[in-house]
Design a protein around this nucleic acid. Structure first.
Lengths: 224, 224, 224, 224
DNA sequence: CATGAATGAGGGTTCATTCAT
DNA sequence: AATGAATGAACCCTCATTCAT
């Protein structure tokens, strides 16, 4: 991986990962809620079970979160924004412009970085994916802040790589969709569908990055 | 699309699409249930709302389906198997062996065919995707019958294309994952995330197929 | 009491007293609710206690009345309109004009009649009086339908008695207030504050009617 | 108004109106509680809202008043006794005996004085009226101290006016009831039911006093 | 076969009260 | 004295399921 990107990502994630100050009970509640929501889904989770797992009175939950939905949002909302953190950074495009960066390195760095993020926040990611279809506010937030932000910031990156001839001339949004699909497909399979399969992570990432670059056809692949 | 595959798909879908014999009320119940489940998710749907939309008494639902979960399964289970129909057909690999078939045509045919299927059964597909994380039986059924069957039948297809040099030498399961990710990514974006976007379907399919074959790097692309 | 008024009141009340058709359980619920609401007030009554007293599952209450407040309104609303029944009758003023009617007879008839009504519906009356301060809708309904109707219908009656010189020339609304205060004061004392006191009803009504006519000063009283 | 009564009332009220010594927070709590109780009724009021409006921690309320009910009683009990203050004074009957006092002046003085009291303590009066039906202790206190005291002190007054021939020979308790009904009816209409109506207070009091003396019949009225 | 009234367990939420700080 | 986090019982209400009709 090229140095600048790596440093930039690592440095930034540290800032965003800090937990806000909360009491110990509040943290137990959040943890329990994440557990239960991820396991059963929001609608099928009961506040009483969350309270039990948090070893807290049911009323205590409602002292900190006005409603059950508030509890969900307090878990999901910050995660949604953190999902994009590495791409939304102010000086990201600048890095890309000033530094000599290979598209392949960029893809690989992003994939590794987001894989780590998913691994660390797996249950919350599950919740996000599972609940987005049912909560208009989540969807709105996702599209308004996340997706819009994403295209605004990432599309220029893709265009830059297209200008340097490293990416084929398809609509940047389409390229984005293809990259994201492949990445999410990998993360889903790796961490959610078949987490117990005997994965060779390095190699699988290689395959995935190569696929994004060269597809499945042998033509045009560089010789290793 | 090459002729043999097309015929084979069309012929087979007809067989599987027939509705089993059910009373008119039963059909109304199923339709209503699909609507409501797709909209709110299984856990947040109430049998009383389903009964209302089906214009049927609450009790009637339970005459046909012992429990609410039975109702869900009666919707989801057959759909899961139908998802794989075109690939699971007995003489599919034979077709591929005897006929001279391009990998590209195969991918394109499959993508178009499954896109049509998704379009036609969108709400049920949504239910399947939404509920699989929460129901062990669904997951089990999916992996036991669907995924296992899929690899058993599809892996040989991929291996065949690898032997003919049309597909690069990666583990077939990995190739499968990459293809399926890309396909599902397209279908999800097309029909569920951004159904209202102004899609140019033909072109988008072209991009997607090209991506599966050649990736985003311009190298190795055939000249159009 | 002069005959025409009496007949008119009795006949009309019969029509309005019919209970609407309701199941036996619904009637048990209403009865229990009246009991409990009258005893503890709406806010301090629990649906579970109502269910218990009605020997009905708590859920049954909510099958018939969507909310606890609905239950209250279903009790209170019809009573509020019935309170005015004898005065709101279409041909009431006509009776007064065509017949030779003494003001004293009118007051006495109304007092006796409403006393009977209060006695029969005592708990509901209590509920009405107790809850009106807390429920804007009740107040609105009371003022819109009841009070407005009352003044529209009753004010002419008072004006008629003023024209015949039987009632002193004060603003009719003031006269109405004085009459109603005295009447309600009697009914409240008789049936709600001191129901167990050893009342001589006939005599007390005589006193009350005489008070409305002649006040407490001995001057101007006719010799009995 | 005749001088002696007026002086006597004014002097005495001053003594009773003094607030007992309480901390500033306690006063804020009481004020907030009066507000909330008057608005929503005791049962529907929450101590947390009272705390909020008093800008005081929830716990602070319970430091000063052991229970929510204690808080209610601390508001209602002293008001109930103050209601009777002008009549319960030790030397009141003496005044009446020694001074030449007209019944009409007495009624008018009492009405004006109590109207002022109601106006000043409106919310507490509302609470008293609203909660008396639901709290046996309040009722008991009311009847034991208030009503009993009232009759003991006021009945002699009425008897005195009956002896001087200014009040008709009805049972004094009945006379009391009629006077009180009329007075409360006025105060209720004036300050609670229709406070926004355009009242001509002086005239309305004239009407009310005249009604108590002479009723609605024109006979026996002195010529103005 | 179809109904819908009835159920009662369990849902989310409120609230008076306690107590360590 | 004052706080406010914590409690858990009780609240109103929903719901899948049953069963007499």
């Amino acid at each position: 991986m090229s140095e600048p990107i790596e440093q930039w990502v690592e440095q930034l994630l540290r800032a965003y990962d800090e937990e806000e100050k909360m009491t110990e009970k509040q943290m137990r509640i959040i943890s329990a809620a994440i557990e239960v929501f991820a396991e059963k889904g929001y609608a099928a989770s009961s506040t009483s079970e969350i309270a039990q797992r948090a070893a807290v009175a049911e009323g205590t939950i409602f002292r900190h979160y006005k409603t059950k939905k508030d509890l969900l949002l307090s878990i999901v909302a910050p995660t949604m924004s953190k999902l994009l953190v590495p791409f939304v950074l102010r000086d990201f495009t600048k890095v890309l412009e000033t530094e000599y960066v290979e598209f392949k390195d960029f893809i690989r760095a992003a994939l590794i970085n987001r894989a780590e993020f998913v691994r660390k926040h797996l249950p919350v990611i599950k919740i996000v994916l599972q609940e987005i279809p049912f909560h208009a506010e989540l969807r709105d937030q996702f599209f308004d802040t996340v997706a819009r932000e994403a295209s605004k910031r990432i599309v220029p990156v893709i265009e830059k790589f297209q200008k340097t001839g490293q990416v084929v001339a398809v609509p940047p949004i389409t390229a984005l969709r293809l990259i994201v699909s492949t990445a999410i497909g990998f993360l889903l399979a790796r961490y959610m569908l078949l987490p117990d399969y005997d994965w060779n992570d390095e190699q699988e990432i290689d395959y995935t990055v190569d696929f994004i670059l060269y597809g499945l056809s042998p033509a045009g692949r560089p010789q290793h």
